[in-house]
């Protein structure tokens, strides 16, 4: 937590059950910490398939529902290309190039 913005950095070695667990925890954490925004950093991820892509979209969905705008940052070029090819353009998810940009935009929107 920095300045009421919650940072979620996804680890390189995250597995399916971890990411599902993260999904379960996120809503509670947002509520408990009264977070005004969420930044999900996926720069460590080399592979994002439709399963992980869907979870990420849902994480953002949870954020939006709890009135905590959610930014996705740090997606690698190869991952972006692959996701688009898979037809997952994540239209509902806000994106930023890096953490700093996301935080700036979150502050500006408040």
């Amino acid at each position: 937590m920095v300045d009421e913005i919650m940072l979620v950095a996804i680890d390189e070695n995250i597995n399916d059950s971890d990411i599902v667990a993260l999904q379960d925890r996120l809503a509670e954490e947002v509520h408990a910490n009264n977070a005004q925004g969420i930044v999900i950093d996926i720069s460590a991820l080399e592979i994002v398939d439709t399963f992980v892509g869907r979870i990420i979209a849902q994480l953002a969905g949870i954020g939006v529902l709890m009135d905590a705008p959610t930014y996705l940052v740090g997606m690698r070029p190869a991952v972006a290309m692959t996701l688009v090819e898979l037809g997952m353009t994540l239209p509902a998810v806000k994106t930023a190039r890096n953490l700093q940009h996301a935080v700036t935009r979150l502050r500006a929107s408040r």
Binding site: E46, I47, A78, V79, M81, E85, L86
Partner: peptide
């Protein structure tokens, strides 16, 4: 990198 990512995905 991109070829690897595509195949592994």
């Amino acid at each position: 990198v991109i070829r690897k990512t595509r195949l592994v995905t």
